[in-house]
């Protein structure tokens, strides 16, 4: 005899699951649709661009406006990997120092991190534009990577600091007494022990870079430096004479697949980050 409570719980679960699943389902359906706007039929024709990366291969005029899909994908990958590498590297070291050492201005620094993390990126756009222009980094991927890294670092440092705080001081002293230098203790003992935290931050910052739009939109002008998010957006914006939603959907699916894979694989690590770096 199934309990009423269980049925109710499942019902709620279904409703909650439907919220993200319905749009996703529509997306996939559209991507496979024969009609450019409505969902009709089943075809792989929209995924033609996968062969050469060129959008609108039959149209000589249009195909020159848009960059190659694979170029955009490469840029997206670079942005994601660059963000991941920099944020992970800096957070793992900064988190350690902030956790273990007391220095003047430590609490001020931590407070600043909290404040920066709370400020929405869009507020800083104008100032960042001028900053990048002055340093000659405007319209470069490097500029965007650096900005993205700066925005993601506060969270990275907080999370990793939390992990380091969870390792008892004794363990480190034991390593020092056993014969490591301060560096050695960090590399051989501390890093392995916070590796779940590092994986979480790596995953998080990769996905953060992969999905970045507003900084790319603001700071990048040449279409060869576009990421996939820009490409999709431009398809919406500049298509005159009719939008090909199905194509956009197909492109979006292409953009989305790595995210879905990473979410499934790294779910337990991502949960740690959002809960705020609590160990275990």
């Amino acid at each position: 005899m199934v309990k009423v409570r269980t049925i109710l719980l499942y019902l709620v679960a279904v409703v909650v699951a439907a919220v993200p699943l319905v749009p996703l389902g529509l997306l996939f359906a559209l991507a496979l649709s024969e009609h450019p706007v409505y969902v009709r039929g089943l075809t792989l024709a929209n995924f033609e661009f996968l062969k050469t990366g060129v959008l609108f291969p039959g149209d000589p005029h249009r195909s020159k406006i848009y960059p190659n899909v694979y170029t955009a994908a490469a840029n997206t990958l670079l942005l994601a990997l660059g963000n991941m590498a920099l944020v992970t590297l800096i957070s793992s070291m900064a988190g350690y120092v902030i956790s273990r050492y007391s220095f003047r201005g430590r609490s001020a620094l931590l407070g600043t991190f909290l404040v920066i993390h709370g400020v929405p990126a869009s507020v800083m756009l104008v100032a960042l534009y001028y900053l990048l222009k002055a340093t000659g980094l405007l319209n470069t991927l490097l500029g965007v990577v650096l900005v993205k890294m700066a925005v993601d670092l506060p969270l990275g440092v907080w999370v990793l600091k939390g992990f380091y705080d969870g390792i008892p001081w004794d363990t480190e002293i034991a390593a020092l007494v056993d014969g490591t230098s301060r560096f050695g203790a960090f590399f051989r003992v501390m890093l392995p022990l916070v590796s779940p935290g590092i994986f979480s931050i790596a995953l998080f910052s990769f996905l953060s870079g992969w999905g970045e739009f507003i900084f790319v939109y603001t700071f990048i002008q040449s279409s060869t430096n576009w990421t996939l998010s820009m490409l999709i957006q431009s398809l919406f914006a500049s298509e005159m004479g009719g939008i090909n939603l199905a194509l956009i959907a197909a492109l979006s699916v292409f953009y989305l697949v790595p995210v879905l894979v990473l979410f499934v694989v790294g779910e337990k690590y991502l949960v740690r980050v959002t809960i705020g770096g609590v160990k275990g």
Binding site: I173, A174, V177, T180, S181
Partner: peptide
Amino acid sequence: EPKDRNIGMVFQSYALY
């Protein structure tokens, strides 16, 4: 440095890796 003092240490919390 501790590593050069040739000491062995045991902690209340054992501090195993």
